[in-house]
Amino acid sequence: MLLISCPNCGSRDETEFHYGGQAHVAYPENPSALNDREWAEFLFYRDNTKGAFAERWLHSTGCRQWFNMLRDTVTYEIQAVYPMGSPRPDTPGPAPESGTASTAADSTTTGTAAPKISGTSISGTSTSSTSTTAPEGATK
């Protein structure tokens, strides 16, 4: 079981939390401009990183607040906990257990047709290691 540090309540068992999947996925800025391919990307495509992954968690049986977490999906080691709306912290993060170096930056949004997302919401570069440019998040 994961031991998760809620930013508001401290360390609690994983059973108190609800998983919210990939972090930093913004609602399309201009929904009516999206074509079917772009809608598919927004609705159904999420990064599936092997290695350091930015994801959302809800402390559902505690403070009932959402927060972001950086976790290694191979070792399950929690590398950082940070508030909704903050950019993904830079990680020195260990390389994933196997695969080439290129998989360390697994699934940066190579999506050829990733939805165009405006500069004020979150960019799609969620797992890029150079995400210092990730702007403020439009979290709900």
Binding site: A40, F44, R46, K50, T103, T110
Partner: peptide, 18 residues
């Protein structure tokens, strides 16, 4: 379970979560 990793190497994405 590693389909996304391979697709990534090939340059496309899959709507898969492992």
């Amino acid at each position: 379970g590693h389909s996304s990793v391979l697709a990534e190497m090939a340059g496309f994405r899959l709507p898969i979560q492992s």
